[in-house]
Design a protein around this nucleic acid. Structure first.
Lengths: 275, 275
DNA sequence: CGCTTCCTTGATTTATGTCAACGTGCGTGG
DNA sequence: CCACGCACGTTGACATAAATCAAGGAAGCG
């Protein structure tokens, strides 16, 4: 069940921004609109060599020392911690455009494992290249930090969900989050409604038992809010789901950059040795 | 009940690392051992002008556009989100040495509020200065990202706690985390055992009702694991607390930098215009 | 055909929330 | 100095959400 694999074209010059490959990473960065064409070129180069891995592959193992940062270009993954009892807590789901091990270049020991939920296309950036990136393109470096900030925001939402919502609302909220994130990373509306999750993954993510996850999903299904097609969830009524859990889409949209920062970053790009 | 306020001395030259003020920020960065004396000087300058605020002050309001990044030099704060029902979810507790709004320079709209739990000394770094920092001292810039990575790790632990542990274990785990973090930021062993928390703050942080927090704290007290002295928790038996919740201190220690990254960062510092 | 994996369902137990009442210390204003 | 209100913690009775245990069904796959 390999996904379609769009080719990553490497563009040569610094010409007035040529059409980019439809990478979900680019889609996410569209909102971070400070990248000039040289930054884009650098990004393209970093993402050019992507490898395809099979469903179930473990990309990163908790405690491992592996400074690489990866970009998930296609497919889904999950980040989790193993617990003393042998269970796992899924920290978050990773979708196309997401970063894996963003801090790998700075914190050698990874604090969570990452495994693939579907076949996936993954680009790897070695530790050194990740550091150099900040030097070669301060704008792209800033973009990486910006991604870090957005990820932090996601984790906050996951916390609020688990800490405050009941089981049905937790699931609704999670599904809506994934839908929103998929749209941001460029999925079509139809693709964004199709979430390849198993119920035990939902349970492990939201801190509930499998049995209870099953019952809660059933409730959502019986109210016509979702359906399941061979193991995938399909959102049927976003409005209805949102009303169950006070979903606020704005918490996932809009990572706008303060004007003052914009100026400085542009100045830096023009004159990297300034001041 | 103002805390003792150590003076922040600004050091002039780039001399062979003079004794630094005993700032908790410096203490935290001790583990990030890549900062040369010029980076330290820059940091000292950023932290030199700290203002003292009263307990209860709201430093940041959710949704507000305020690109500043702050450093908590003394005192405690909490970061929280307001929920539709009017309650709050405390995302995490901030202790001396912690950063407030690390991503402020890149994401203008803050996604959580921060208010002071005690009187506190706070240094403010404007948005522009935060960006320039990456240019003026790549090492210090890396240190800021590194802090972001550690904060991410903390948030993961908070999630695991809330998602997986029962009420008593959640509280024990939280108290141990705070103890560990306090030691890292330079608190004496005695100070680190003394946590100025109210039970309703614990409840709002761990997603449980106030009543249940009260009962759970009582259990910990009755087993001699903690005591309370006029509203503060005092850890009495760390070993005992840890056995209740599988606390793994290593999750909070050791943000070691990969060797490859160390080399590159040092090279960058020596030759900021290299390659 | 007999595995496994994923999901389902019912009966029961346990953890936690909710409601309501009360205590204690503490600051404030009379 | 007292009376009052307020923030904070405590306690008990009760309701509810969710875990657990146990059994079984449906699909995929050798």
């Amino acid at each position: 069940m390999k996904g379609t694999i769009p080719k990553a074209t490497v563009v040569a010059g610094g010409a007035p921004i040529p059409p980019r490959p439809p990478s979900p990473v680019h889609a996410r960065l569209a909102e971070f609109d400070l990248l000039d064409s040289s930054a884009m070129d650098l990004l393209d180069r970093l993402l050019a060599e992507a490898a395809v891995h099979e469903e179930g592959t473990v990309l990163v193992r908790e405690g491992e020392e592996d400074g690489r940062t990866r970009f998930l270009l296609d497919g889904w993954a999950l980040r989790f911690q193993s617990l003393p009892g042998g269970e796992r807590q899924i920290i978050n789901f990773l979708i196309p455009g997401d970063t894996i091990g963003l801090y790998g270049a700075l914190i050698s020991r990874s604090d969570a494992s990452v495994s693939l939920l579907t076949d996936a296309r993954v680009a790897e950036v070695p530790c050194g290249a990740m550091i150099d990136l900040f030097h070669d393109s301060p704008g792209l470096g800033a973009a990486m930090c910006w991604i870090g900030g957005l990820d932090d925001r996601l984790l906050m939402q996951q916390l609020v969900r688990v800490a405050r919502l009941d089981a049905v609302a937790r699931i609704a909220h999670l599904l809506l989050e994934l839908h929103t994130r998929l749209r941001i990373s460029g999925a079509t509306e139809i693709a964004a409604c199709n979430l390849p999750l198993a119920q035990n993954q939902i349970a492990d993510s939201l801190g509930m038992s499998e049995v209870h996850a099953s019952r809660s999903c059933r409730r959502l299904r019986s109210e016509g809010l979702i359906t399941t097609v061979n193991g995938s969830f399909v959102l049927q009524d976003r409005r209805g789901l949102a009303s169950l859990c006070d979903f606020d889409e704005r918490r996932f949209l809009g990572g706008r950059i303060p004007p003052a920062a914009t100026e400085r970053l542009l100045a830096l790009a023009r004159d990297p040795k300034g001041s």
